[in-house]
């Protein structure tokens, strides 16, 4: 049983117009096995939260804390966070020149586990995980994300989620740009990782559509860098019906 605790998190970025505060005091606690959906309109700071948890250098934490079982996550470099059991499925996965998927997956797995995976079982594991996510076998020999379509990139993020077996995953708009079939395949992948690894999940999304496949235990409504309201799954239904107007009016 692990806990990822985000407390009163304030985050700023440098812009040409000066420092801009994006997160204005976010508090969320996620335990193993829980799925937390974070919903909110564009520009409310959802992706900033995701990137900050993963340690993107662009985001400066001005106050507050993130801890993983009491360990200070903010003190860790991005690679150390991943090694500690955290994973970010990115909204816009980056194309990495010169590095094949096979090489990348093995190198990352080795770094995360602290030892190289056994080649035979690993190869099989990768192949099977790719099959389940309906990723063509030839992707293994292609460079990381290079020339992949938006949907393919998202599948490959979830492939990593399944192979790296993190304790906590942040899924940053994994559903955006997916057609209905891809959405189902990707959601099944998340659910597998969830049930097999007792993973804690922070699922960031605009739309309730993905929540038909991935059932949240908690829903947080994000508005203007804060959690405006929290509730159970029924809060998502209400958002589906009424949109964010009720929350935006208060800003």
């Amino acid at each position: 049983m692990s806990t990822l605790e985000i407390k009163d998190l304030h985050v700023s970025i440098e812009t040409e117009q000066g420092t801009k505060e994006i997160l204005k005091g976010v508090t969320v606690t996620i335990s193993s096995g829980e799925i937390h959906a974070v919903m909110g309109p564009n520009g409310s700071g959802k992706s900033t939260l995701a990137s900050t948890i993963a340690g993107h250098p662009r985001y400066e934490v001005t106050s507050g804390s993130i801890t993983l079982d009491g360990q200070d996550v903010l003190e860790m470099d991005p690679d150390e966070r991943a090694q500690a059991g955290m994973f970010l499925a990115m909204q816009y996965p980056v194309e990495v020149p010169g590095v094949t998927m096979t090489n990348f997956l093995r190198t990352a797995k080795t770094a995360i586990d602290g030892e190289a995976p056994k080649l035979r079982t690993w190869t099989k594991e990768v192949r099977e995980a790719m099959e389940k996510l309906k990723i063509d076998a030839d992707f293994a020999s292609r460079n990381v994300n290079e020339g992949f379509s938006g949907g393919e990139k998202k599948r490959v993020e979830i492939l990593q989620l399944e192979l790296f077996k993190p304790k906590f995953a942040v899924l940053d708009e994994t559903d955006s740009g997916l057609d209905i079939d891809a959405l189902r395949v990707v959601s099944e992948g998340v659910n597998r990782a969830q049930s097999e690894n007792n993973m804690g999940t922070l699922l960031i999304t605009h739309y309730t559509r993905i929540l038909n496949y991935i059932k949240p235990d908690y829903v947080h409504v994000f508005v203007d860098g804060r959690v405006a309201e929290q509730g159970g799954p029924q809060l998502a239904d209400e958002l589906e019906e009424n949109g964010y107007d009720r929350f935006l009016a208060a800003v």
């Binding site: 991005p78 991943a82 970010l88 590095v99 990352a108 770094a111 995360i112």
Partner: peptide, 10 residues
């Protein structure tokens, strides 16, 4: 950042 966020040291 992408590679590091997958546990790979710089």
């Amino acid at each position: 950042f992408y590679l590091m966020s997958r546990g790979i040291p710089e």
